[in-house]
């Protein structure tokens, strides 16, 4: 049993073979495609060898998200998903044997509605290890970071290609677990290739912090993951996975497990 909270990320990244392909962090929207699918999906991601997982707590106005995650969120909200229920999905998955680190991703307003301290406490109690809030830049993040820290949880901030290196250093100083590197100027959503700006950002992050780097927004294919070997420690894959699940044809867990294995470049038995 590894430590919970920020320590679980440290252990997971430390256990990863250095220099190889980045680890996979699949993103699933809580309550998508159905209210009961999230815990099984997380366990499927673990079976497929994911380094960690990210659970999106849906918000009515997701500014940083493209159409795929917007649609997944609305569908989940229409079926009655709430922040408390989303958090409890992770608790269910832990009870069923989930051991990989889990980050919750949501927007600041649902956190404020629950109360910053109550949100951090609920996340900790459910076995969530870190929190990502894409509309909370470092200037506004001190309160949440303090509450998360008090519960041993990682505050995982984002940096973007437009972030100057001096600011990257300032942001990274507030981070635990890993630094979330946004690969594009844009919203989430599958893209055809990894931009040179993303590689530049990853280098700039490495120049100011020793924390692991996870690249997200747009990563969708096994060849992206392969090309990122030695450039970053993990990739976050959300929209491409949700698109695969939405296109259906199989049980969501089966689709997710196959999808993550393909990203890892391993066969069904790997």
């Amino acid at each position: 049993m590894t430590a919970a909270g920020a320590g679980r990320f440290e252990a997971a990244f430390a256990a990863r073979a250095a220099g190889g392909r980045p680890g996979i962090i699949p993103y699933v929207t809580a309550g998508f495609p159905g209210p009961g699918d999230t815990a099984p999906l997380l366990l499927a991601c673990q079976r497929a060898g994911s380094l960690a997982a990210e659970v999106g707590i849906p918000f009515s106005d997701p500014l940083a998200d493209g159409p795929t995650i917007q649609n997944a969120g609305w569908r989940a909200l229409e079926q009655g998903m709430t922040p408390a229920r989303a958090i409890s999905q992770v608790a269910q998955a832990r009870d069923a044997g989930l051991t990989i680190p889990v980050a919750a991703m949501t927007y600041i307003n649902p956190v404020l509605a629950m109360g910053v301290e109550a949100f951090a406490a609920a996340c900790a109690a459910a076995g969530i290890d870190g929190v990502i809030v894409p509309d909370l830049p470092v200037e506004e993040a001190a309160g949440l970071a303090a509450s998360l820290g008090a519960h041993g949880l990682a505050h995982i901030p984002l940096v973007a290609p437009t972030t100057p290196t001096s600011r990257v250093a300032r942001v990274a100083a507030t981070a635990a677990g890993f630094v979330y590197c946004v690969s594009v100027t844009g919203t989430t959503g599958a893209r055809a290739s990894v931009s040179p700006a993303a590689l530049d950002l990853l280098e700039r992050v490495r120049s100011v912090t020793a924390l692991p780097r996870a690249l997200g927004f747009g990563i969708s294919r096994p060849e992206h993951v392969e090309a990122l070997a030695r450039h970053c420690e993990a990739v976050v894959v959300g929209s491409a996975l949700l698109d695969a699940i939405a296109s259906g044809g199989d049980d969501p867990g089966v689709i997710a497990e196959r999808f993550v294995r393909e990203l890892r470049g391993v066969g069904a038995a790997g």
Partner: peptide
């Protein structure tokens, strides 16, 4: 008030 925006927009 404040500025609760994605990091990409902060420099802008």
């Amino acid at each position: 008030g404040g500025a609760f925006v994605p990091e990409t927009l902060v420099p802008a």
